[in-house]
Structure formats: structure tokens, C-alpha cells
């Protein structure tokens, strides 16, 4: 009887320790930061993967906390009786971790390879990799623009101005965007860039060079509204320009090797 009593006490002690240990254990996976709409990075990748594991998230896992992720998170919070605020706080993280699995290595490898994939629970992960590429950059853009726009303008900026200061690269991107809005030019980015004789980089084939991160960052700033040219629609290098006409354009300012004109 005494032995049974000891076993019972030991069992209660072990159970209590386990419960306390579990409650005090910090969430092993996510970082300590509260993550919300507009965020980008590893926490969002894990959030999307875990939400997809539980069937709440059906879109691409790209690390960008947009509206699809936001609604999925709110649905998850509602189902599990958490405050429905669309914020990834400590309680939501704990619940997500307890009801889902996250294979970090697998997910990051697929993203790195540019594969299209899903992470639904109850299915073999390897079988969820589709035989197609998922095009996604590491940048979040204003709703008006797409990643295709970023890619195309970055190619043009890199081909035209990779030797220029950062301000000069933002300026070239801004000129392209100013032309899209200007009545004298085509209304789409591709038509502005590929307009005959408009850009040297198109004529000499440099448009197809892979742009670096600096060119992409410059384009991102221009897409977000920065225009160091103050509304220019032309630019030229006075050392290499052969057209006399370009000198007749009203000049605005000089950045690096380029004169920007209205």
C-alpha cells in the first residue's frame, strides 16, 4: 500500500513537472517578434507553412505577409479560440506549433531552388513539389506594380546605369515610370522600355544581363515613389550623345554621368 502511494506521488510529480515544463518552454520555432501584415522573412515563411499544414493557407509560400496570409491567420485564430487580430503573437505561435509541423530545411531549400511546392499536413512533402518554377523576388511592391515590372525595369536600369551612383539608378527607373504616365509615351512598362531607339541597353542587348541587388533596390525605391529627376522623361550622357535634338530638351539636373531633361 505504501509502495502504491509512492508510485502515485511520483506519477503526480512527473505529470505536474511535465505540464509546468511544457508551459514555460518558449516557442522553439518562431523568433520572439510579433509579426503582422506587411512583414517579410523567415517568420512569415514558417507561419505560411504551418498555416498550410493545417489547411488554412492555400497560396504560395513566399515569406510575404499579404492579405492571403492575414485572412488565413485570422481564420486559424478564430477556430482555436484565440483573439482574432491577425497578429502572430506568442499565444498564436504556441498554438500553431502545437497543431502543425514545419520542416524548415525542406521549405527553405524549395524556396532557394525556386520550386513551386506546398506543405499540407498528412501528405508526403516530397510529393508536394511540383515540376514548375515559382517566380518570386524577395521584395514587396506597392499594389500597382508586379514582380514582372520590377524584373523588367531592373534589367533596364542595370543595362543602362550600373556604373552610376545609387541616386542615378533610381533616377533611370523613375524616368521609365514617368514615361508610362506621360501622354507622349506608351502606357505600359514593357512598351516604354522596348520602344525603338529609346534605350541603348535594348539596342545593344545589355537589357538581358542579370541585374544585381543594388539595381533592384533602386527600382524598388522608384516604384515606391522616389523620383530624383523631379519629373524627367529623358536623359543622356553628354560625353557619348550623338543626337543634337536631345540638347534641345529642357534640362532639369545632372546625376552622375547623365543629364536629365523634361
Amino acid at each position: 500500500m505504501k509502495q502504491l502511494k509512492y508510485i502515485l506521488i511520483s506519477l503526480i510529480f512527473c505529470t505536474a513537472s511535465y505540464v509546468i515544463f511544457q508551459e514555460e518552454q518558449p516557442t522553439q520555432a518562431f523568433s520572439t517578434q510579433i509579426v503582422e501584415r506587411g512583414a517579410y522573412g523567415d517568420d512569415v515563411i514558417e507561419l505560411q507553412s504551418r498555416l498550410q499544414y493545417t489547411g488554412f493557407y492555400t497560396s504560395q509560400i513566399d515569406g510575404k505577409f499579404g492579405y492571403n496570409t492575414y485572412w488565413a491567420l485570422r481564420n486559424f485564430q478564430e477556430k482555436y479560440g484565440l483573439p482574432v487580430d491577425g497578429l502572430l503573437g506568442e499565444d498564436t505561435k504556441k498554438k500553431l506549433v502545437s497543431v502543425s509541423e514545419f520542416n524548415k530545411e525542406f521549405v527553405h531549400e524549395q524556396i532557394k531552388k525556386g520550386n513551386s511546392f506546398t506543405t499540407y499536413g498528412g501528405q508526403d512533402l516530397e510529393k508536394q513539389v511540383k515540376n514548375q518554377q515559382a517566380e518570386s523576388s524577395n521584395m514587396q511592391l506597392p499594389p500597382k506594380y508586379s514582380e514582372k515590372d520590377l524584373k523588367l525595369i531592373a534589367n533596364a536600369v542595370y543595362g543602362e546605369a550600373r556604373g552610376e551612383p545609387y541616386e542615378g539608378q533610381v533616377a533611370v527607373a523613375a524616368v521609365i515610370l514617368n514615361r508610362v504616365e506621360h501622354p507622349d509615351f506608351p502606357n505600359t512598362i514593357s512598351e516604354v522600355i522596348f520602344q525603338p531607339l529609346a534605350f541603348t541597353a535594348v539596342a545593344d542587348g545589355q537589357i538581358w544581363l542579370e541585374p544585381n541587388e543594388r539595381a533592384k533596390e533602386a527600382v524598388l525605391d522608384a516604384l515606391n515613389g522616389w523620383d530624383p529627376t523631379e519629373n524627367a522623361i529623358y536623359y543622356f550622357n553628354p560625353k557619348t550623345a550623338t543626337s543634337k535634338w536631345i540638347w534641345s530638351r529642357p534640362q532639369i539636373k545632372t546625376i552622375g554621368q547623365h543629364i536629365f531633361c523634361a
Binding site: K148, L152, S190, E191, F194, P196, V202, I207, W208
Partner: peptide, 17 residues
């Protein structure tokens, strides 16, 4: 080659947009 590539690229990208 560049001129053709530009023209085709423009047509494809434009159709895509």
C-alpha cells in the same frame, strides 16, 4: 539579333502584361 530579340521580347512581355 538584338532587334529581333527586342521585338519578340516586347511582344511577349506586352501580351503577358
Amino acid at each position: 539579333e538584338n532587334a529581333l530579340a527586342s521585338q519578340y521580347s516586347n511582344q511577349l512581355t506586352s501580351a503577358s502584361e
